[in-house]
């Protein structure tokens, strides 16, 4: 009798732990190939698709499978260099057909918008808000400047504007490549 209870308890325990482990395996599953993670970490996450893939992560996977590292214009030369360092490949100039792009944000001319929701469907990061037949607007802080909402708009009311720079974003220039003397503020002034 008592041996039967022991067996039953053990069976129950095994079942519980099995279930727990199974759950943990699903819940805490290692997302994917760590090299893909590392590549994705370097890509700028603009999600613009200029690389020919539907987003940065798919491109990261493609690179891991041997695709070229010079297809991401928002990442620029710096991005290519970082990828080359990571993967031990040679630095290649950015693909000729692509141009290194400046950071921009989308801006909807709201009085012209007809509320067709096409741009919402195009935006890869859900940065556009609006309801059918009502004016739409871009949440600037969320916009990655990917350009994908511009083409679908039937009334052409979306502009890509350069990200405005104010005093708070201003940076000291790099004296190494700053030839304009005016920008170097002399600090050594007491003779």
């Amino acid at each position: 009798m008592s041996s039967l209870t022991a067996v039953l308890i053990l069976v129950c325990l095994a079942g519980v732990f099995g279930a727990l482990l199974g759950y943990a395996a699903i819940r805490y599953r290692v997302e994917s190939d760590p090299i893909v993670e590392q590549i994705d970490e370097i890509l700028p996450q603009t999600q613009c698709g200029q690389c020919g893939y539907p987003g940065c992560r798919p491109y990261a996977e493609a690179i891991a499978n041997g695709d070229d590292i010079n297809k991401c214009p928002p990442g620029g030369e710096a991005g290519v260099k970082a990828l080359a360092d990571l993967l031990g490949r040679d630095i290649k100039p950015l693909d000729d057909t692509l141009e290194e792009s400046q950071p921009t944000v989308a801006y909807i001319r709201e009085d012209e918008c007809i509320g067709c929701t096409k741009c919402i469907q195009a935006c890869p990061v859900d940065a556009i808000v609006g309801a059918p037949k009502l004016m739409h607007t871009v949440i600037i802080d969320e916009c990655t400047g990917c350009d994908l909402c511009v083409a679908p708009c039937p009334v052409d009311c979306i502009d890509m504007l350069p990200l405005e720079q104010d005093v708070r974003q201003w940076q000291w220039p790099n004296p190494a490549n700053d030839t304009d003397d005016d920008n170097i503020i002399p600090v050594r002034q007491v003779s």
Partner: peptide, 14 residues
């Protein structure tokens, strides 16, 4: 940080 945020939003959208 901004890129990480965009990645999160992109993945959520997917």
């Amino acid at each position: 940080q901004k890129a990480a945020h965009a990645r999160e939003r992109f993945e959520f959208r997917e």
